[in-house]
Amino acid sequence: MNDSNRLLGGITLGAGIVIFLLCRGIDTLPDTRTLSPDFFPQLLAVALSLLGIGLLIQGKGRPLPPVAAKVFQSRNLAVVGLTLLYTCAFGYGDYRLNTVMYIALVMGVLGCRSRTLFLTVPVLATAVMYGIFRYGFLVLLPTLF
C-alpha cells in the first residue's frame, strides 16, 4: 500500500465497520412511528464503508513516503503532542502557567532562537489573552490563585 487514497480507503472502510457495529448498540423504542434512532448512523456507516471501498479501488492518491516523512518527523510529533497536552489539560492547573509553557515550548520546537522573543512573547501574549478574556469577556479561565 504505497498510495494515500488506498490508506485512506482502508481507514474509512475500517471506521465504517466499527461505527456500524457501535450503532448496533443503540437502543430503539418499541412504539417508534418513524425511522429508528439507529437508522441514520447505520446508513452513514454503510455509506462510509462503500466510499472506503471506492477509494481502495480508485487509488491514484499522494505517494505515501513523503506523507509519512512529514507526519513522523520529530518536530511535528512534538508540536502535535504539546498541542494535545495543552488542550486536554486545559481544565487542570493554571491557565496562565500552562499557556506560558505551551507557547515557549512550541516556539522552541519550531526553531525560534531569539532570546528576546523567548522571554517576552509567552508572558506578554498570555497576559494579553488572559486580560481580554477574563476582564473583557468575563470568562472565568481556570486558575489556581
Binding site: V79, T83, Y86, T87, F90, Y95, T99, Y102, I103, V106, M107, L110, G111, C112, L117, V121, A125, T126, M129, F133, F137, V139, L141
Partner: peptide
C-alpha cells in the same frame, strides 16, 4: 511563524473555552 503558530493554538483553545 514559530511565534504565530502557538499563538493561534492558544487563541483557539481560549476562544473554545469561552
Amino acid at each position: 511563524m514559530p511565534v504565530l503558530l502557538p499563538l493561534i493554538g492558544v487563541f483557539a483553545a481560549t476562544g473554545c473555552f469561552a
